[in-house]
Design a protein around this nucleic acid. Structure first.
Lengths: 233, 233
DNA sequence: CGATGAATTGACCGATGTCAAGTGGCGTGG
DNA sequence: CCACGCCACTTGACATCGGTCAATTCATCG
């Protein structure tokens, strides 16, 4: 697992898009390799945003914590995805925590270094702005979802998003290649564990999905999309 | 109402922060003055993001529409606040619609012009990134709120935010100087008109607020904050 | 002063959260 | 290799918040 094997991660990353290959190699040479154990935290909400990460191996979850202790699962990240983009700006704090679901390997860059890079390659600044804009849009869509859709619909959309993002096709159906418990799902769609369990059982009876241990096997993705749109079937 | 009277709007605007006065004057000279009638739309969701606006007079609301027609009130904007920051990036669509609550006057800049400005003054790019980051954080906080708090708490927080953002102190109490109907409030906190009405009546009986015609007079802001935190009083 | 749209209030009910008991797969330690 | 124990999950019963429908009152504007 030599450092140079990480180059494709960088060439395909949204933030470093559009600069030359030698530059990519230079950027890689600046990277630190940071690992995290299962359940370990790569980022803690409220701490100064110093570092930008790109995930190489493993999966992590972005958690938003409230003053009162309740937590919300904002999104999952998989290999090739970045987080902590806000580190490009000085004086900010991380708005979320990032916790490793499995043992993780990441590439990491410090904020000052990034500032220099942006100065040299303004395109990277634009890319960052683009990344934030996309994040904003997704958040807005989900905000809307939360306000207007029922739990079952939101769960269906969540599973659709997850399969699209990290789906892995197997002979039996599509499986998300990241361990996700019912409780994770509950925190992700904003409901409770028993409710998720109930809805999945129901869908399993209809043959749309198969509820597995810490994961869900999707048999009929198109039916899931339908469930996400229709009010109450 | 001459053009030059708009200069303070620009010098105090977050996106144009940190450049010299002559530059501010130059930026102002590039601006178009765009007006909107009551109920008129300055921005329509889904259209190409071509223009950045700063509100000079009046108030507007940012609406997010869903495929199914339901709409959510994302936030209100008042004089001095900007919207359509995404126009700095080419190839994007507006993620929200912006509708004038009252007759509005705005300063507007086209995307290409902004791109040139950013090239000349990279600081403006940073400012934009900062603005988006702040928006992101607020959205995240409200996302969390939606998932974990009850309607009454969310309404209390909404009113707190509104008074902080556009509050106007009067002899009787604090009043938001923008006409907001119960239905607006309902769309803002993600509930229905009757529910808002019921909660406000209840608070009025406790003497925390006074429900007025198309507005709410806040008598005891600190009690409102308390209501926003406490589960169910 | 009437018309219109906003706001209040009541009755009803359904979707979900809460509490609690029971089941079963997986890993650890003997 | 087996058995125990733990943790994830399932399922049921029940309470309740809040949405829906509808009737009525009230403020503003022509």
């Amino acid at each position: 697992m030599s450092r140079s094997s990480f180059l494709p991660i960088i060439t395909q990353s949204p933030v470093f898009q559009g600069v030359s290959l030698p530059t990519h190699q230079r950027i890689l040479s600046f990277a630190q390799i940071v690992e995290a154990d299962q359940q370990g935290f790569l980022i803690r909400q409220g701490y100064p945003a110093t570092t930008l990460y790109i995930l190489v191996h493993g999966h992590a979850r972005l958690l938003h914590l409230a003053h009162d202790g309740s937590q919300v699962l904002v999104r999952f990240v998989g290999p090739g995805q970045e987080f902590g983009v806000i580190a490009l700006l000085s004086g900010f704090e991380y708005p979320v925590s990032v916790q490793a679901v499995e043992a993780c390997v990441t590439l990491a860059w410090q904020g000052e270094l990034l500032a220099q890079l942006v100065e040299e390659y303004p395109l990277i600044g634009f890319n960052a702005l683009r990344a934030m804009a996309l994040q904003n849009q997704e958040l807005l869509d989900r905000y809307q979802e939360l306000l207007t859709e029922h739990v079952a619909q939101r769960l269906a959309q969540a599973l659709s998003r997850l399969t699209e993002q990290m789906g892995h096709t197997t002979p039996d159906g599509t499986l998300v290649d990241c361990p996700i418990s019912r409780e994770d799902l509950a925190e992700y769609v904003g409901t409770t564990l028993p409710t998720v369990s109930r809805i999945l059982s129901q869908w399993e009876r209809c043959g749309v999905v198969v509820a597995k241990w810490k994961s869900v096997l999707i048999l009929r993705p198109q039916d899931l999309e339908r469930l996400a749109t229709q009010p109450q079937p």
